[in-house]
Amino acid sequence: MLNILWPIFITLSIVYAIYTGRVNEINNEIFDALESAVGLSITFLGTISLWNGIMEIAKSTTLINKLTNILNPIVKRLFPELKNNQKVNQEISINIIANILGLGNAATPLGIKAMKSMQEENKRKDELSNSMMMFILLNTASLQLIPTNVIAIRTSLGSQNPTSIIIPVWISSIVAAVVGILAVKVLIKKGRK
């Protein structure tokens, strides 16, 4: 995607700037942009390292298993077609917990594993099953306990209260996820007709 967008953005901007006589602005921007990318990365170095370290502790304990067990009943309701397959249910729950804890690097391989297990159960191998659709939707909803990246951005820009957005983020992501789940259910029902 970015292989298409990136060159378009840059050439379009430069041509447009020359056309509207904003060459000086463009020149300043090139160096400002580099500076703000590096500045943000320095803030990221602190917050992301801290968070990764804390989550490494979480991974070493049984906490993730406990959270997975709490989530299991919800997963069973969202994936009625997998009711006999405890292994897939477990894989889905672990993926969701990893997403919630912000373990992005761990969540994706876990999710791929869950997708492969669901593919074994899938009756039409060339098409997403209902469970797979629900699973992908849950992964496109950003269910994250601590939105670390946003807090890092806000900190690097000198916010008075970088963490104040946490509860608004929770409300917004839960509402979005519920809307998405309902939309998938509608899509599945319509497809059956």
Partner: peptide, 17 residues
């Protein structure tokens, strides 16, 4: 990635697009 993207987005803004 951040450097490349910040450049592109910064140019989009400062050019007025």
């Amino acid at each position: 990635t951040l450097i490349g993207i910040f450049l592109a987005i910064g140019l989009l803004r400062s050019s007025g697009i």
